[in-house]
Design a protein around this nucleic acid. Sequence first.
DNA 1: GTGAGGACACCTGTCTGACAACCTCGAAGC
DNA 2: GCTTCGAGGTTGTCAGACAGGTGTCCTCAC
Lengths: 243, 243
Amino acid sequence: MARAQRDTRTLVEQLRDDIIALISDEQLKPGDQLPTEQTLTETFGVSRPALREALKLLEQDAVIRVERGKGRFITAGATVRVERPITVFESVTQMVRRYGYEPSTRVLSTAEVPADEEVAEALRCPVGEPLVRLERLRLNRDVAILYCVDFVRRSLVPGRLYDTDWSGSLVELMGSRGARPVMSTAHASAVLLPEDVAARNDLRDFGPALLITETCFSADGEPVIYALDYHRGDAFSFSFVRK
Amino acid sequence: MARAQRDTRTLVEQLRDDIIALISDEQLKPGDQLPTEQTLTETFGVSRPALREALKLLEQDAVIRVERGKGRFITAGATVRVERPITVFESVTQMVRRYGYEPSTRVLSTAEVPADEEVAEALRCPVGEPLVRLERLRLNRDVAILYCVDFVRRSLVPGRLYDTDWSGSLVELMGSRGARPVMSTAHASAVLLPEDVAARNDLRDFGPALLITETCFSADGEPVIYALDYHRGDAFSFSFVRK
DNA sequence: GTGAGGACACCTGTCTGACAACCTCGAAGC
DNA sequence: GCTTCGAGGTTGTCAGACAGGTGTCCTCAC
């Protein structure tokens, strides 16, 4: 009862964050014991089930470890955190801005193409399905930092291709069409720009690229965008936690 | 009570997996409603608190979404899964094997070096701290696929450097020293092999490399290994989920 | 004095029952 | 036809209780 209800989050989520704050405040280190359930319920003024749900979340997050009959203990996961990991979904546009770039976008080409096997599998559509293929380049102060190829189902973007503004965030665009991507599966590898692309766009000095091949899904689980993003090697570095 | 107790996992964890199985069995799709708490407690023969803890875990995993007063619904996260994502910690040795390679390891150099600023910050030790610098190459059928540089505190591997077998998994080695890494923070970027390394080891044709810079932590939260792993671009591709 | 055993306190795991807050939808009243 | 109200369904939260594992300390037998 000792708890403000302004917060729209559920009690459990507040509790989870409160406990993290407590670990930080008390400077608890890996191996240290967390206060017992009874103590915590009293400190936070909540019931045991609510507290236990919050603790369970932290346990799944590898922040704490539980030993029956003994107690709960801080693990290494409590100290190992990274800001804005690549595993949090965001649009390429957002990501680029977050890196401090304010890029201009150059639309290299838009075309209606039939789905080949690779794209068809990713977008779960028949081979030959009409798609829009979008080819773009993002430049920061006239330096190309990102070369992107995107595929979306033609049926999701009806109308004439040149009536649409393709220079903004594709995620936003799909969002306005009622199919906003909210998560994705991705693969990362290191490549060079395709030879013809480098030649056509004067990108010989692009250097090694981090290629992220990403299939974006909308809230109803439908694949919406299939994207190949070539990140200039010396312009991007992605972080993540492994546990 | 309808539940086998052989399983050493806690009831909640079994429940979480049971619910995932149920989603799969019933072929529930994103947007579909999950059975209500009451229904689920009856089908699984468990209490509501236990069930709720399991549901909370799935909620955190973005498998389900809850709307108060309405019910729980499947989200895209239920369908979007990836096997063996890069976000699960494992040793480089394990990872390479998982890719189907059976590489030989060539130890290029071992040396005792003082920590420079970059490494000192990662390993949270003073600049100048004595470290072991280990330089290795992994070859698959005589093709170099991975070039690794590792740093560990000298104090963790006492004894003469050449008395230690450095050709195996460094994670295992540290494990036998009581400091087994269990998680890490990592950064990925695309680079070329350092010029001198390529020259010295006849690696001109290595091509673009996916560089993963990783700090590995032991269970007690101490940084144990600082590693630079250059993955040959055409030999590796890492997958992960973003949500 | 010493070692083995048991009683007990402490902790987490699980269950039961209850009430509050929120949503939907239909029926009653206007 | 429209609005209002209320009943029923669903999740959010709480209180209390018992079960089972762990560690400690005391006692008792030797």
